[in-house]
Design a protein around this nucleic acid. Structure first.
Lengths: 127, 127
DNA sequence: GTTGACCTTGTCGTAGGCGGCAGGGTTGCA
DNA sequence: TGCAACCCTGCCGCCTACGACAAGGTCAAC
């Protein structure tokens, strides 16, 4: 299959697939005319990549999962390195969520105060 | 006061203050030698800006709060536009938090599965 | 006078995952 | 034969809030 077909089959774009290839995550044969040619395993690979990206990993992170990106990844357990990277990324995600939730709460509290007391009391509270 | 003093007084950096000025959020007089000179209100302004940024607003967002950045912002209620922008930003923050939490949960679930059953069952589950 | 701490403007870099364009070749079909 | 649809490489843009320079001027103290 060609890049457009693979893109459609995996719910992504040709541009993204070239990007993954440039990042060393997928590879392709070339037809005589220079077009990229993929086999069926490519679709599985790409879907696994998309899953990891959607789970909050970066392309760099995904790279350490390369050995187990073919076939059902659940069948071939990721390396110790893969697990470590995933856990680290999990920690980063939790950190981000915590920070953004704190920001959200601050903003919400400020808005709530505005909603509640229209007549200023002189007390601090932000916004 | 000069930029370095203002930076220290507000817990930020001279670079950031120049950035705020370039973004049209603060202004300054100039001394004969070209140095920026600020009055006391500047510190309040900057602190208010920092508060809004920490609450998840962007510099563009903060701009609509300009009319009420002087003095205790809680005393002068923000404009209707300001409130609208703040609410929109709140929605964006909530959206982001939701998405990242979902990603976090996916990753966590995948890791938990790996931890639980070392012998592959062949069932799907990611990673 | 010279060192060192401060200030100025201007510009590039960052992180991330592509989007979009330019400028070109290839293929299939009417 | 001519068009539309696909493909190629290469490179800039995006978005955010600055950090980190470079190359220079200014001022107070020693």
């Amino acid at each position: 299959m060609r890049i457009g077909e693979l893109a459609e089959a995996t719910g992504t774009t040709a541009r993204a697939l070239r990007h993954y290839e440039q990042a060393g995550l997928i590879s392709s044969e070339r037809a005589a005319n220079g077009y990229r040619v993929y086999d069926e395993r490519a679709a599985v690979r790409v879907r696994n990549i998309r899953f990891l990206l959607a789970a909050g990993l970066t392309l760099d992170d995904v790279r350490v999962f390369l050995p187990c990106l073919d076939g059902d990844v659940a069948a071939a357990p990721p390396s110790a390195t893969g697990l470590r990277v995933a856990r680290e990324r999990l920690a980063v995600l939790n950190e981000r969520i915590t920070a953004q939730t704190a920001a959200r709460d601050r903003l919400e509290a400020a808005l709530r105060q505005k909603d509640g007391l229209e007549a200023g009391t002189g007390r601090h509270g932000g916004l």
